[in-house]
């Protein structure tokens, strides 16, 4: 059997026309969007480089300093352990508390934002647009606003984190609720059940595993954001890190940073484990 015989006749004709013996593998009408997109990225990168006027050579000469700083950070100073631990506990508490409040608010607003629960389209669109606005403004900005309103301290951290987290949960929960099949909802609708009752008895249990997954993902984000928020004055480990860095207290800062990494890693592993169970 020759090679020619295994090639379908249509393909053989095609390749004959192109006067080449290679078989084409791409789609007939090629998608031109991807090459155009990539060209756009390259152009934007070049423009950004020109605009920012970054001096890479000067930066390169500073690289050895990075090693020095990390070397200093690695010389752990255990003298401030009590403050570091208590502020770490504060950070975790802020993250957990804001998560819990947002979870409750997110389920309530997600119910309104989902188009299939109450079937009031204007209300869903209004809720979704409002929370899109809240989400567009970054968390540190909300925390700074709350610091102005509520004063320094962890209350502002919880409140500021809640704004963004609730907005995030509203969108993601609404999506989860909308993915519940209309037929299942219909089956309860025809029993004469009210829409709120359908939501709690059918939609919520069906979306439960997705809610847990979103929550786990968000706890990670909240924790890392919380670490940043301390730097703007909302209490917690971030404040300890920034203060120690400013005072060239690299040993204590090093321990705090390591602790942040350990806690973040533990949270991640924990939720990987929980996700497997559901």
């Amino acid at each position: 059997m020759t090679d020619e015989s295994v090639i379908p006749s249509t393909v053989r004709n095609n390749s004959a026309e192109k006067a080449s013996n290679k078989i084409p593998v791409g789609c007939k009408d090629k998608n031109t969007f991807v090459p155009r997109f990539l060209t756009g990225v390259v152009v934007l990168t070049v423009l950004s480089l020109i605009y920012l006027n970054i001096d890479w050579l000067k930066l390169l000469s500073r690289v050895p300093d990075v090693g020095v700083v990390f070397w200093d950070l690695a010389h752990f100073d255990f003298s401030d352990m009590d403050i570091i631990f208590s502020s770490m506990l504060e950070t975790v508490s802020i993250a957990v508390l804001s998560l819990l409040y947002s979870l409750i608010l997110g389920i309530a607003f997600g119910m309104i934002a989902a188009r299939n629960i109450f079937k009031i389209t204007w209300l869903s669109v209004l809720t979704q647009s409002f929370f899109t606005f809240l989400r567009a403004v970054p968390t540190p900005v909300w925390v700074l606003l709350m610091l102005v309103c509520l004063g320094m301290g962890s209350e502002a951290g919880v409140a500021g984190l809640c704004v963004h987290t609730t907005a995030f949960f509203t969108k993601s929960f609404a999506q989860s609720f909308e993915s519940i099949s209309d037929e299942t909802m219909e089956a309860l609708e025809v029993t004469g059940t009210s829409r709120l009752s359908i939501f709690i008895n059918a939609v919520l249990p069906a979306a439960f595993s997705q809610i847990v997954a979103w929550t786990g993902m968000r706890l990670e984000t909240n924790f890392s954001e919380c670490a940043i928020l301390g730097m703007v004055g909302a209490g917690g480990i971030g404040y300890v890190i920034s203060r120690n860095l400013q005072n060239y207290n690299y040993g204590s800062a090093g321990i705090a940073i390591l602790l942040v990494f350990i806690v973040a890693y533990v949270i991640e592993r924990l939720f990987v484990h929980i996700k497997k169970k559901i």
Binding site: S181, E183, T184, E186, A187, E189, V190, T191, G192, N201, A202, P205, A206, F208, S209
Partner: peptide, 16 residues
């Protein structure tokens, strides 16, 4: 509606 029961081709239960 509660006087009328309905059964569906795809059962439409809450599977969780």
């Amino acid at each position: 509606r509660r006087k009328v029961g309905m059964i569906f081709q795809n059962y439409n239960l809450v599977y969780s």
